[in-house]
């Protein structure tokens, strides 16, 4: 186990190193200047600004400095926001994205589990078809289409919830629901398959033979075992939430990291783009690592490849 974790952590850092270098190279290749009105500045003025941000140094020097700072958790300063520290900027915006993400994750998984259980326990009935249809729709309909639909129906048409911006918890309802569609669908499908498999196993038959009632079988025996593998879908769910947050935050004008990222792309804000990219990557890679390790710990039947016991 220790060997496996060490191996995975080394790969994690290799991946991150690659992403960091790649991001750096891409930023250098990128057309356009980070200065909003570069053409209006005189050559001397531009020189001063470039000197200040170290943009005049040879590329390798900039690279080493960038990587060194990165290792210290310093993503540099934003060009767009009057020298705001990128790390501080991300931390400040993180709050909104984290609230949306957490709400979507909890709400989505719970609804998904309920739908999946209903489908499995009432297999091949209207209930089953209904929840399968919801799952298919959740996987298929892009989050931005769903978000726009929600916004139109509840904010523009019925006017019961705010259209956008962050004005307290009420503003987070619609974007959270839009984001939750993915987790609902993934969890529902997964739990259904797992439950059906567990329900047909021998120990369920034994429980039935011993006279356990329906409720006991469903919750005490089947559900708990079906729940364990659900951890594995956490990786894809997290990736989906992150992707979704870019557009959903944009649609509802939530001042989170996703919206920040999209804004930085259009304003060529190198430091923020690199910082956010690294943040996204670390976030996803660490989650996947934790999921893999957790799964091995929780379910001892899983033999992690590479780890000799």
């Amino acid at each position: 186990m220790a060997k496996y974790i060490t191996k995975r952590v080394i790969y994690m850092f290799l991946s991150l190193f690659l992403i960091a270098s790649f991001t750096f190279v891409l930023m250098k290749l990128l057309p356009g200047s980070p200065l909003a009105s570069a053409s209006k500045l005189s050559v001397e003025q531009r020189e001063v600004v470039y000197e200040k941000y170290g943009l005049n140094d040879p590329i390798p020097v900039q690279y080493v400095r960038y990587m060194g700072n990165l290792a210290k958790g310093d993503f540099g300063v934003s060009f767009q926001y009057k020298n705001a520290d990128v790390t501080t900027l991300i931390v400040k915006k993180l709050k909104y994205s984290a609230i949306l993400g957490a709400q979507a994750l909890i709400f989505g998984t719970l609804i998904g589990i309920i739908l999946g259980m209903i489908a499995a326990l009432k297999q091949n009935t209207v209930w089953d078809y209904g929840s399968t249809i919801i799952a298919i729709l959740g996987i298929s309909i892009p989050s931005f289409v769903f978000a726009v639909l929600l916004q139109y129906v509840f904010a523009v048409w019925l006017e019961v919830l705010p259209v956008g911006l962050w004005e307290g918890w009420k503003s987070s309802i619609l974007p959270s629901i839009a984001l939750a569609m993915g987790p609902i669908a993934i969890a529902a499908r997964f739990i259904r398959t797992e439950m059906i498999e567990v329900l047909s196993s021998d120990y369920i038959l034994l429980a039935k033979a011993k006279g356990a009632n329906w409720f006991e079988i469903a919750f005490k025996h089947a559900f708990r075992n079906a729940l364990i593998p659900l951890i594995t879908v956490l990786g894809p769910v997290a990736a989906g939430l992150l992707t979704g947050s870019l557009v959903v935050e944009q649609i509802f004008a939530i001042p989170g990291i996703g919206q920040q990222f999209v804004k930085s792309i259009s304003s060529n804000d190198f430091a923020v783009i690199m910082g956010t990219t690294m943040f996204f990557s670390v976030f996803l890679i660490v989650i996947i690592l934790i999921v893999d390790i957790l799964y091995g710990v929780i379910d001892p039947r899983i033999r992690l490849s590479g780890g000799s016991k």
Partner: peptide, 19 residues
Amino acid sequence: VEVLIGIPTLVIVILMIMI
């Protein structure tokens, strides 16, 4: 592959489009 698979699709797609 193990190094590449760690890179999130979303990140790589956006970076590639940018250049």
